[in-house]
């Protein structure tokens, strides 16, 4: 049985179908589910083995990109380990889903929401809550361009295990610049190897704009939690799953390198 994958949508989600197709190609069974179906009880989180928070502009970026989706995750879907007053009465919570080790992937707006909910990087050195953020690109504008991502060796991230080469895929965002709360948080993230992917140039080396398309600190493109089952990144690997999507396919370059992340996640999800 291919693992069932929940692709969560809310008002303003827009790369749900891209993510679903990537999951299907990687051997999963994706279902695009609106949050109202979880809240009404028509569907249950616990019936799925993997969760994808796709890209888009959830709630029109009201109150900041990903902010309201973050409160949905924490409260409506029970993403907090200790349910607060007023939290969801859902029997199966996002906290249990994450705790059980099932993989969660946040792409672009999904990453912004995971970060703002404090689910990424998660509690670290005794500090919790929102420890990092994603703000306006250093170029001061929306950027749609292809970037190379280097998977960092030693990271616990289950999505980026043993990749054979860099991932090449587009970014498409106005607010993707990764910033930690302070130097200590950055040091802790590095020490725990929570940086899963960094922006690099065509040779695989750290480089500035446009290779690092948004001015992210330490070229950080995506991070995971300590367990490695929650992973978020700004770029869109789901938009490079066919060879002809490669911008230089007509020049004979090999493509579809975004698929590997989904294959890893889905292979891992199969155990649950």
């Amino acid at each position: 049985m291919p693992p069932r994958i929940l692709i969560l949508t809310v008002s303003g989600t827009n790369r749900d179908r891209d993510a679903a197709l990537a999951c299907e190609l990687a051997g999963g069974k994706p279902e695009v589910v609106h949050i109202s179906e979880l809240l009404s009880g028509a569907r249950r989180l616990s019936s799925y083995q993997m969760l994808v928070l796709p890209g888009g502009f959830s709630y029109g970026d009201d109150l900041g990109a990903g902010r309201i989706l973050a409160t949905d995750l924490l409260y409506s879907l029970g993403g907090r380990a200790q349910p607060a007053e007023g939290a969801s009465a859902l029997a199966d919570t996002l906290a249990e889903f994450a705790e059980s080790g099932k993989p969660i992937l946040g792409i672009c707006n999904g990453f912004q929401a995971l970060v703002k909910a404090g689910l990424l990087p998660g509690p670290i050195d005794g500090r919790n809550g929102q420890l990092v953020t994603l703000v306006g690109n250093a170029s001061n504008r929306f950027e749609c361009r292809w970037v190379y991502l280097r998977a960092e060796p030693g990271s616990p991230c289950i999505f980026t295990r043993s990749l054979d080469g860099p991932i090449y895929c587009p970014v498409a965002h106005g607010e993707g610049r990764f910033i930690p709360l302070d130097e200590a948080i950055l040091a802790a993230i590095e020490r725990h190897k929570l940086v899963a992917v960094r922006y690099v140039d065509a040779n695989g080396d750290l480089a500035g704009y446009p290779w690092n398309p948004n001015g992210s600190v330490a070229n950080i493109a995506g991070i995971c939690n300590e367990k490695g089952n929650i992973f978020g990144l700004m770029p869109h690997p789901e938009d490079h799953v066919f060879p002809w999507q490669h911008p230089r396919w007509a020049r004979g370059e090999e493509g579809a390198s975004g698929l590997a992340l989904f294959r890893n996640g889905i292979a891992y999800a199969a155990q649950f």
Binding site: R17, C144, F242
Partner: peptide, 23 residues
């Protein structure tokens, strides 16, 4: 201008507005 428009969403763009060895 072109880079301010998302020309990749929906994953269907095979020949992109900017092309070539340096995109």
């Amino acid at each position: 201008v072109i880079r301010r428009y998302d020309h990749e969403v929906q994953g269907a763009t095979a020949v992109k507005p900017l092309t070539g060895v340096a995109n």
